[in-house]
Design a protein around this nucleic acid. Structure first.
Ligand SMILES: [Zn+2]
Ligand SMILES: [Zn+2]
Ligand SMILES: [Zn+2]
Ligand SMILES: [Zn+2]
Lengths: 121, 121
DNA sequence: GCAGAAATGAAAATGATTTTCATTCCCATA
DNA sequence: TATGGGAATGAAAATCATTTTCATTTCTGC
């Protein structure tokens, strides 16, 4: 069932841990690897399911895949160049917990991302 | 230069202040308004330029346009039945601001969602 | 070896968004 | 009022990421 193609993962790493499906595909082509675009999409999807990478959106809507460490953290992403800083959740962790309890929710998780323009853009 | 078509703006308001270009277009059609899809896209783009609406992305990448001034809020969503509660950002708003400043980001926005199982599930 | 399952990828389909371009509308000026 | 040019409009075509289809290949257990 796991279609987490290791060549795709390795390419994503080599790309700086941050690339779109099309970019991963083009990179593999350039490096002479034989692979189909469909397989790249499926592998990335699978890596997302396995929580090995997560997916964000460029400003133009294209999905970008990004290797993710295991420790729970959040992201500060540049809308323009895609630069990403991993940040601590801080107050969010408590906020999520309190809000969930307040409304009778259990087994809660959360997502939180900040996006803007970085110093270089 | 301003193509901020007032009929499009009014429709976006009527849609709850939150809709995709396609949805605005379909809504106008259903209401018997004569307008082209291209014009809807251009009007929304123009409203974004004028900072009257801002644009977010659905999970599938589709752009959704939101009236500025709609109260900013977050969601608590049930993983099982989809029930959604609108909640205040509370500490998150400050967290996002502080984190962004700390890393030299500007023009920042953020997303934050909590998901879990509601009381009924 | 051999059947059945899983993986692969080329090609077609999908769907949002953008571009093109011919037409229509608006409006200032003669 | 006529007219000319710029802006707005929208149908149709183009673009482009992503998904689906489906035939073929590869793998796995027997
Ligand atoms: Zn940047
Ligand atoms: Zn967190
Ligand atoms: Zn529920
Ligand atoms: Zn907020």
């Amino acid at each position: 069932m796991s279609r987490s193609n290791p060549r795709v993962l390795s390419t994503l790493e080599r790309a700086g841990g941050f690339a779109s499906a099309q970019e991963v595909y083009r990179l593999m082509q350039r490096e002479g690897e034989s692979i189909g675009l469909t397989t790249v999409y499926r592998a990335l999807q699978s890596l997302v399911n396995d929580k090995i990478v997560d997916v964000l959106r460029r400003e133009d809507g294209e999905a970008i895949y990004r290797l993710c460490g295991e420790a729970h953290h959040h992201h500060l992403v540049c809308k323009s160049c895609g630069d990403t800083v991993e940040i601590e959740g801080g107050a969010i962790e408590k906020w999520a917990k309190v809000m969930a309890e307040e409304h009778g929710f259990r087994e809660v998780g959360h997502t939180a991302e900040i996006f803007g323009l970085c110093g270089k853009c």
